[in-house]
């Protein structure tokens, strides 16, 4: 890696000031960043390490209105958190526990998982120059090797969003708080991801210097359940080929509320509102799940090598709905 100035802030304000500088990058555990630096796809002049702020930015607590999960909370802490043990947040717990390896989960943070750079093999190699990486005229995967790429809602870049916590948190109605210019701002989690995920857009919508502080989960009311499942090529340490997070509310054996969010199929995590709506008022059952799964991939446009992901995506939605209503 190239030499850089390493900033260890004492306060969020210090971190914000340092991170606002041109080219500065924020670091959580560094799981993603160190890979980018070693591959030399990035050479930032300044790295601002957030870990000194762990006392304020890590941990899970009930803040009265719901759960607040600090951005520096590790995936292992999330996977094992007592506060997340109920059925409502199963999706979050499971997604965190499935990520990477135990070694990574011991270090990797919630913030890093949500904000990491896409894992496209063209984007991630210094040997290639692509549009999203800002080093080429086109998306190389669109016409190249794309078996693991987007099948849904892509524009001029077919990367997939790599976070598995993002769909889980979206399905559970999460919000997020950031710190910017001395102010904390809270928004629905969907606002963290670009509406139109073009090549020019980053994986997230944070401004330069804006720091993700926490994720909030609402207090569940009623029989609320969620789960998360992903398809993979192997069980140990693999990226999802497709992922689905679902949350349903059941009342007297009928689904009264539902959300379905897909991961690993589009440049952003994709809530599938129409598919979820089709479940409302229905009794759980395979026919309803199959229909919802079909609707979840409506409008999909797979690439030359990844049509198989359509079947997988339908399967994982069906499987997640089956599991969560069991």
């Amino acid at each position: 890696m190239k030499p850089f100035t390493y900033v260890l802030p004492h306060t969020l304000a210090e971190a914000h000031t340092a991170a606002k500088k041109a080219g500065a990058v924020l670091k959580g555990a560094g799981i993603d960043l160190v890979d980018r630096l070693k591959e030399r796809i990035e050479a930032p002049p300044e790295v601002v390490n957030l870990l000194p702020l762990k006392n304020d930015l890590a941990g899970i607590a009930d803040d009265g209105g719901g759960l607040r999960i600090g951005a520096l909370t590790t995936l292992r802490q999330i996977a094992e958190a007592a506060a997340l043990q109920g059925p409502a947040f199963g999706a979050v717990r499971i997604a965190a526990g499935l990520t990477a390896t135990p070694l990574v989960r011991n270090r990797a943070t919630l913030g890093g998982n949500l904000l990491q750079l896409a894992r496209c093999w063209y984007l991630r190699s210094a040997a290639f120059g692509c549009l999203h990486g800002g080093k080429g005229p086109t998306c190389l995967a669109m016409t190249g090797e794309n078996r693991y790429h987007s099948i849904l809602g892509w524009h001029d870049c077919v990367r997939v969003h790599p976070s598995n916590l993002a769909p889980a948190l979206l399905a559970c109605g999460a919000e997020y708080t950031t710190f910017f210019d001395g102010k904390q701002e809270r928004r629905p989690l969907a606002a963290l991801f670009p509406d139109e995920p073009t090549a020019q857009k980053a994986e997230h919508t944070l401004r330069d210097g804006e720091i993700l502080v926490a994720i909030h989960l609402p207090k569940p009311s009623g029989d609320v359940r969620s789960t998360y499942q992903e398809t993979r090529e192997k069980d140990s340490f693999d990226w999802a080929t497709t992922a689905a997070a679902v949350q349903v509310t059941l009342q007297d054996g009928t689904i009264t509320d539902a959300s379905i969010v897909l991961g690993a199929v589009s440049p952003v995590p994709r809530p599938r509102a129409e598919a979820a709506k089709s479940l409302i008022g229905k009794k759980p059952g395979d026919a309803a799940f199959l229909k919802a799964a079909e609707m979840a991939v409506a409008g999909a446009s797979p690439l030359s090598q990844n049509a198989y992901k359509l079947s997988l995506c339908k399967a994982i939605v069906r499987a997640a709905l089956t599991e969560v209503t069991r």
Binding site: W121, Y122, S125, A127, F128, L140, G144, E145, R147
Partner: peptide
């Protein structure tokens, strides 16, 4: 898995 255009291994 090879990138046919560049001849470079992708994985």
């Amino acid at each position: 898995l090879m990138d046919k255009r560049s001849g470079r291994m992708l994985n």
